[in-house]
Design a protein around this nucleic acid. Structure first.
Lengths: 192, 192
DNA sequence: CACCTAAACGGAGCCGGACTCACCTTATGG
DNA sequence: CCATAAGGTGAGTCCGGCTCCGTTTAGGTG
């Protein structure tokens, strides 16, 4: 779709407006914003929304894609700056903290993990790869156990981030993440 | 409602039928069974269903309550038979395996954890208490860290169990649980 | 610039699913 | 038996995602 013809000017504008409206809604915490409202606040009708996005879910995915891209890039950066173990620790906490801000990211992770929907296959795979990078670096250095895959870890994180809701969840989330991290080091060759 | 008057005979029969139909549906894996269908397969009309249960969610909760009761009872039993650490390990794995069978329990845990809904407050509290029991026994024995609460751990487990879906999730779930368990021991006074 | 056409838009309406309500049926105690 | 309140019914409402087709318009062409 992005190929073929360059998209008419008004269409591109509307598409943009829709994405921005959706971003505002979803990343603002209203995970079940109504399509009707999103369309309206983008200044278009539902029909238009559906011209641009196959389905409500597809719109969500599009909104999240950029976030996921950013996230997937960081492990590389962290590994340049820190030892693998520390990079892993930081990334895990970064995810959780990220999830706290506007609770947008937590929905991302949750959506990515909670469903099997092919819509998120792509994001899932990329995130799993990002985590693998860290895990492998760690296990190569001998400070992280080597029997855990990125996709497994992703699942665990998805669970943690999916639990935003109650007051003070951030504290709990941090704690569980630390727990997980300790678990990851537990079986490493060079034990603690 | 259970008080006041003893419920008319036919009413009790129908209530039972509804619960059994719902149990069959939910514990059978169809987590979003339609009320219409549940009512029909219990041989009554929707109106009757709604006479007995405030809402669809309330019906679900009722179905799950018994499961949760059973589950909450086991920590005590395990502690009688095993050292606290081992009891904890067994209980965690028991939850996961339980979740595998008919995928009923995983929905229980997920539902309990994933929502903030007051409907599950009760179940949530009881489960958290059950876990606390294990954690406290462990930390009293010095083999489990003492800075994790039952409710925190419950969150983590909820996340794990909520991820059933993909093929082979049981393996992953077991792994994550083991990770969590190792994390729980990591900070204990008598380190590994 | 006037015209033409494919592209884009609008929004009434469809559909599926949770829930309600006005009316009918029946258990039960007197 | 009958009265009557408890219980049952299911068509209908509401709500939210999605569709369909008639209308509008961007932007290329002569």
């Amino acid at each position: 779709m992005p190929s073929s013809r360059p998209l008419r000017a008004d269409a591109r504008r509307n598409r943009e407006a829709l994405l921005s409206a959706a971003r505002q809604a979803f990343l603002g915490g209203d995970t079940d914003a109504h399509v009707e409202d999103i369309a309206r606040s983008a200044g278009v009708a539902v029909g238009t929304l559906y011209r641009h996005f196959e389905t409500r879910e597809a719109l969500i995915e599009e909104v999240y894609r950029k976030e996921v891209d950013d996230l997937c890039a960081t492990p590389g950066v962290l590994l340049d700056q820190y030892a693998p173990e520390e990079a892993l620790r930081r990334f895990l906490l970064l995810l959780v903290d990220h999830a706290a801000v506007g609770r947008g990211m937590s929905s991302v992770l949750e959506s990515i993990m909670a469903t099997d929907s092919p819509v998120f296959d792509d994001a899932r795979t990329r995130m799993a790869n990002a985590l693998s990078l860290l895990l492998e670096a760690g296990s190569a250095a001998g400070t992280v156990r080597d029997d855990v895959t990125g996709s497994t870890l992703l699942r665990a994180l998805g669970g943690i981030c999916g639990m935003r809701a109650t007051e003070g969840w951030l504290v709990e989330a941090r704690q569980i993440t630390a727990l997980l991290f300790d678990g990851l080091r537990y079986g490493a060759p060079q034990s603690p």
